[in-house]
Amino acid sequence: MNGLMLFMRRIWPQLLTLAVIVGLISIMFPGFFQISIANGRLYGSPIDILNRGAPVALLAIGMTLVIATRGIDLSVGAVMAICGAVAAWGITEGYGLFATLAMALAAGLACGLWNGVLVAILGIQPIVATLILMVAGRGIAQLITEGAILTFNHEGLIFFGSGSVFTIPTPVIIGVLTGAIITLIVRRSALGMLIEAIGINLRASTLAGVNTRVLLIAVYMTSGLCAALAGIIAAADIRGADANNAGLWLELDAILAVVIGGTSLLGGRFSLIASLIGALIIQAVNTGILLSGFPPEFNLIIKAVIILIILVLQSPTMRTVAVFFSKDPVGASDKEKETVAP
């Protein structure tokens, strides 16, 4: 019970933000909550947010772990393009669904391994190490698709983008399952704690006997795997691999999702659930802008202002102000302490 309370206390700012944004959208656009079933699939704006948010949510899962180790993975957007290209290439070459998926996931793992080796073995700073693949990745993807949009019509592969299971869109299911599995792995074992230890102090963790190299590589490979899943979904969604545009700038959305989720870029404590809610917040803003009918020139400005407000409200200074103005300053600051070090 106490654990649940702590958990809710950790994620309530994110939940509140999401609720406020969804509330604002539904005021502007009253039909927001209408959900029906079209073509055997749930249909409605809230479903769009979940469905369109799935790729960024998947990236955010991997990104959270990487950021918790005090790293960053700029390559995930490009890895999406590579894995989407591999999937489209595999299916058009007639390798069959299983082999195609295996190849696409293996490509993601290989990209993660590359990043991990650069960071953990060669000791290159993560932002530089992953920048290499961010720049080169689209080139690799273009080599695979030969510069064109590689289209396919394989129903099995399309299922991962626009199919559904019990009327729930497949991308949502993949996102939720991946989030659940990885949360279970890191929280039901000591792995999560070890990842946080690396983020807080790499040297001390190594000296304490944590196999930091292997763990770091594993974390980057997890990020690569998540990017591969997102890449498969993105390609399956449009029935084609677009090496130039698949996952373009999504690495920044993923980082933003983690930040909105309250995980510090300086590493250490992390929350996967909060990052997932962060991804939904970003997508809710995107979908809200599209529904609002504003001219497209305002898209980025509106998004930037909303994100700015969210980040300002979450900033340490605002917290201090909130504590100062609350009726019970002592009690509030005690609560703060509790959340910081449970």
């Binding site: 039909g31 704006s45 949009i149 449009i238 084609g240 677009d242 599209l290 529904l291």
Partner: peptide, 20 residues
């Protein structure tokens, strides 16, 4: 609304047009 000349955005924006 802008779809950035890409399939993905074209699909996403059309989805929102349909709902709106």
């Amino acid at each position: 609304q802008t779809g950035d000349f890409t399939r993905t955005k074209g699909k996403e924006v059309m989805e929102s047009f349909l709902k709106a």
